[in-house]
Amino acid sequence: MIDLDQIDPARHLLIAGPTASGKSALALRVAQAQGGLIVNADALQIWSCWRVLTARPSPGDEAAAPHALYGHVAPGVPYSVGDWLRDVAGLLDRRLIVVGGTGLYLTALTQGLAYVPPIPPAIRAEGDARLAAPGGLARMVADLDPATRARIDTLNPARVQRAWEVLTATGRGLADWQADTPPPLIAPADAQRILVTADRDWLADRIARRFDLMMQQGALDEVRAMLPQWDPSQQWARAIGAPELTAFLRAETDLPTATERAIIATRQYAKGQRIWFRGRMRDWQPLAADAKNTRHD
């Protein structure tokens, strides 16, 4: 367990790590000992419709220390990393404990985020259609400017579509826009940055046990409540486990299969997080996951 004497209470604290590695429990422990506002940096935990399914802090934890930007966005409302940064900017009058696993949020917070003009709905719709077509991802990758293609994860459909939409809408590649990045909201020198690391097999077991617990706590009921407005193209529908449990509720598969697929999807998500952290956050202070810090994500 980390010694809290190693945490500087005079600076912001940023805690990153893969899903199920114990970040939230660590953040709560620091907040209770030192004070500070716990701020969500998980793009899946922003949605009001998902508490259990995304392992948001429990009502008890939220009562034990102040929390912000959890479950504050309604389904169907567009929300970007730029929106998140604007929300965080409104909280900087106090010491923040920013915790989450969305690497894009955390790097934008500490490295700055380039302004990109809003994408017209017609181009977004065209992007959706192109991506859904057979071979659409490969064609979108081929259409990108070389500089952007070299910088993004070309196996990530959401990242590729975003880059394609920016190039189509503005005539400038995403890499070109990013070259004009302003100063970060929280400079590295103004925060202590911790990256929770975990053994792959230990984390895989933790993910499976946590998903079983989610099912006991009502994850299926959360998905059932959203079934009438289910739309897989929506941001809120990307919550890990939601597509798999929706398939069960629509009688497209059985519950054991849906559960296993959701667990596999979570493990794949964690792998993607680790790749981001290794590539973009090498200068963060590593901290081995501790079983005592794993009550939540």
Rank of each mutant, 00 (worst) to 15 (best):
G22Q: 01
P256F: 12
Q217H: 15
G218R: 13
V30G: 07
A55S: 15
A179E: 15
L4I: 14
W236M: 05
Y70E: 11
R224A: 15
G60H: 03
P243Q: 07
P188E: 12
A179H: 14
L4W: 13
P183Y: 12
S233N: 04
T170C: 10
V99S: 10
L85D: 01
V88S: 02
V98G: 08
A163M: 10
T110K: 11
Q285Y: 05
A20F: 09
S233E: 01
A147T: 11
P57V: 06
H67T: 06
G17T: 01
D8L: 04
A16P: 03
H67V: 04
E165N: 09
D128M: 12
Q34R: 11
E222A: 11
A219L: 05
I263D: 05
I38Y: 07
E126D: 14
D128G: 00
L167D: 06
A10V: 09
R282N: 14
G22E: 01
P9Y: 13
G173N: 11
Q45E: 10
A163Y: 07
I7C: 00
V81K: 00
P188I: 00
R86N: 04
Y115K: 02
A179T: 13
A158L: 14
P286S: 06
P117H: 02
A125H: 13
Q192H: 00
R11N: 12
A208L: 00
V77E: 06
T197V: 13
D61F: 02
A198I: 09
H72I: 11
P9H: 08
T266A: 15
A74S: 00
L167N: 13
L26K: 02
W50N: 06
R11I: 06
W284L: 01
L137C: 04
I97L: 11
V160R: 01
I119K: 02
A125K: 11
G272H: 10
A114H: 04
T54S: 10
L131M: 07
L69E: 01
M1H: 14
P286A: 07
L13G: 06
R86L: 03
L13C: 04
T170G: 09
P9W: 03
D231Y: 08
A16T: 14
D190Y: 09
R238F: 02
I2F: 02
Q234A: 10
A237V: 05
A20L: 08
S24V: 05
L255F: 11
A43S: 15
R56F: 01
R280D: 01
A33G: 10
Q111C: 12
F277E: 08
I186C: 09
A208C: 08
E62R: 15
Q234L: 03
R86Q: 14
R95V: 06
P157C: 07
A179Y: 09
P232H: 12
R149D: 07
L137W: 11
A198P: 08
P66N: 01
L144S: 01
L137E: 04
A291V: 14
A55G: 11
S21T: 12
A251Q: 15
N156A: 09
L28D: 07
A41N: 13
H72S: 04
D5E: 14
D93F: 09
L227A: 13
R95C: 03
A242I: 00
D205S: 08
A68D: 06
I7S: 12
I207N: 05
Q217T: 11
A65E: 12
A68P: 07
